[in-house]
């Protein structure tokens, strides 16, 4: 059978959901922080920059464990979310999105920041003198010109989320249908007797997915630049 099984569909759909939501959630933060880091000078900028990039150099397991400490049922934030809003993050798909977002955030931020830095800030000033409000000037000029770079950032975060393993398994475990994304499913199959064929099918699926995302984003970026 070439077509994916229903179990593989579940894994694939969850991975895509986690990847897309991780990008959607990270993007506003990456654009705001990218703008701040690219355009503003202030005390503590280096520290903020370092903190934002920390998940890139920390072992993902550490990121997952820290998220568990913070957002687990007994964690400071997790307790509040659970008691006040009935919202569970740890050991749910929401947690998988969050782990992927935290780990992929530095990649997105870096791309967005570089893209904003490459836009001449005087263009935005010119837009202001032409009557554009600051947000309008930013969106219609700087963000539009930075769009190809922002898209690259989105793709990097998406790709990183597809590959995210350590933080996810530590924070939300490996629950079929809930938190078992592609890498976790592959890991599960590899650990099962006779699971190699199933793992191989998922590996091929991962490659197709990643390659598809790369080609699509490259095509969109080219169209934006022309």
């Amino acid at each position: 059978m070439i077509l994916p099984t229903s179990e593989e569909y579940t894994v694939l759909a969850l991975s895509l959901k986690v990847g897309v939501l991780c990008v959607v959630i990270s993007l506003p933060f990456a654009v705001s922080l990218g703008w701040v880091l690219a355009r503003k000078n202030f005390r503590g900028k280096l520290l903020l920059d370092g903190l934002c990039h920390l998940p890139l150099v920390l072992p993902p397991v550490v990121v997952g464990y820290l998220l568990l400490l913070l957002l687990g049922r007994r964690g400071f934030l997790g307790h509040i979310l659970s008691e006040w809003f009935g919202l569970q993050i740890a050991f749910t798909w929401r947690g998988a999105v969050l782990s992927a977002a935290v780990v992929g955030f530095p990649l997105m931020l870096r791309a967005v920041r570089l893209a904003i830095e490459s836009v001449d800030p005087r263009l935005e000033r010119a837009a202001r003198t032409l009557g554009a409000h600051p947000l309008r000037a930013f969106v219609s000029i700087t963000l539009r010109l930075a769009a190809p770079g922002v898209l690259v950032g989105c793709l990097l975060a998406f790709a990183r989320s597809l590959g995210e393993f350590g933080a996810t398994i530590t924070f939300v475990s490996n629950i079929a249908g809930e938190t078992r994304t592609l890498p976790l499913a592959i890991f599960t199959y590899i650990n099962q007797p006779d699971g190699e064929a199933a793992a191989a099918r998922l590996v091929v699926l991962s490659i197709i997915l990643s390659l598809g995302a790369l080609i699509a984003s490259e095509a969109i970026a080219r169209k934006m630049k022309s």
Binding site: D120, R122, L123, A126, R128, T129, P134, A137, I141, L145
Partner: peptide, 20 residues
Amino acid sequence: LPPEQRRVGHVFQDDLLFPH
């Protein structure tokens, strides 16, 4: 007043046209 409310046109030495 912020620049967008001044109703003052500004032509710069480098034209600063929006390239896109």
